[in-house]
Design a protein around this nucleic acid. Structure first.
Lengths: 202, 202
DNA sequence: ATAAAAGTTTGCAGTGCCTGCAAGTTTGGC
DNA sequence: GCCAAACTTGCAGGCACTGCAAACTTTTAT
């Protein structure tokens, strides 16, 4: 990678870093693009060369592209239940997030304090979601217009989001993977009422 | 209701109607608040006395308040599985939407064409979502910090959203209730792979 | 009926996000 | 070193949205 691209990468993360730090300190609404740009030593106009919106700077680059998700999902044999398949597909991303723990905890804190950001946490756009739906459909030999793939895609996404929130709220010794497994497990159980201690399922 | 409130109601729906119509014609991005206000015969400043954001005018009033949801949910006996409980709680809202079919189909078309609106379709705000989580928790004798209520609330919301999308995409003879039931049924089945015709579950 | 009170609409001025355009400046290949 | 491509920047401008204070309208009390 040449000097050029290295510099771009630097500017990019300088911008997210500044955005995250400032938003964490004062709340996203009390930080202007002008301030973020100043903190990253670029002009406000340049900010928008890197990110389409102020929010995007907070969210940074996606950990995993929709294309990768689709590709991997299609590689999972059809016998594997969709929940396990999705879990497998996301595992590398989960580990990636776990590795960048500090960054992500900060990011999640900012998201939690600025709920406007929340929807974008998973399924960053309708386009990505549609790709995901299509992949689930293809893997199951179904149409993207069928209920199952649409539901599976959206619901696993929602479950993942819940896992992220819980992980970020938990203590430092927890692994994101555990939260995701727990959530997906409950999903696979059909959201059956969890058994309080010493109680049998009816 | 006095003249005053009647007029307010009139203005309010004139604004949503104008917003929906114009957004449907040209796309939300190509409609300004000024235009919506002009179509509804009020000043742009007045628009913002009625709706906090342009999006809100599209979305109109919530069909069911978070408070009602919580109230009803707490009334459902604990033995009823959460999915059935939620289904029961939403039924009146579902019928309400079905009754205002024309309005909602238009609204859904606008939402589909302007995916930025999509997240707000269910769980209009983080606050509402939290109330919902709390209600699910209370009904199940769990804490709002537990995984189960958080997951159940978010996931059923997502499923409802999918049902709405499917209903709006389907022909005129379909009932929203059927789509919701189908989605909730798949959820209850743990997102098991649906059986294609003439095939046995492994 | 009339005047005061309470609630609504409106214009105005201002902030901040975001965009297109037309320079300037930096970088990589020759 | 020199050219072309890529990147940065300033400027002008559109639009969402807000607070404030001045009309205006409905309601209430007399």
């Amino acid at each position: 990678m040449g000097l050029r691209d290295r510099k771009k990468q630097q500017t990019r993360s300088a911008l997210t870093d500044a955005a995250l730090r400032l938003a964490d300190e004062r709340g996203l609404d009390h930080v202007t693009v002008e301030e973020i740009s100043a903190a990253a030593d670029v002009s406000p106009r340049t900010f928008f060369n890197y990110f389409a919106t102020k929010d995007d700077a907070i969210l940074g680059d996606p950990v995993i592209t929709a294309e990768t998700v689709c590709e991997r999902l299609l590689a999972v044999p059809r016998e594997v239940p969709i929940i396990d398949a999705v879990l497998g597909v996301f595992t590398p991303a989960i580990e990636q997030i776990q590795a960048d723990r500090e960054l992500w905890l900060l990011r999640m804190r900012v998201i939690k304090n600025n709920p406007a950001l929340l929807p974008i946490l998973f399924a960053r756009g309708a386009a990505d979601e549609q790709l995901f739906v299509a992949a689930v459909a293809a893997r199951g030999g179904l149409s993207a217009e069928d209920t199952f793939p649409q539901l599976a895609a959206v619901v696993t996404g929602a479950a993942f989001r819940v896992a992220m929130m819980r992980w970020s709220a938990a203590g430092p010794d927890h692994r994101l993977a555990d939260f995701v497994c727990e959530a997906f497990g409950l999903l696979a159980a059909g959201l059956a009422h969890p058994v309080p201690t010493h109680q049998e399922v009816v």
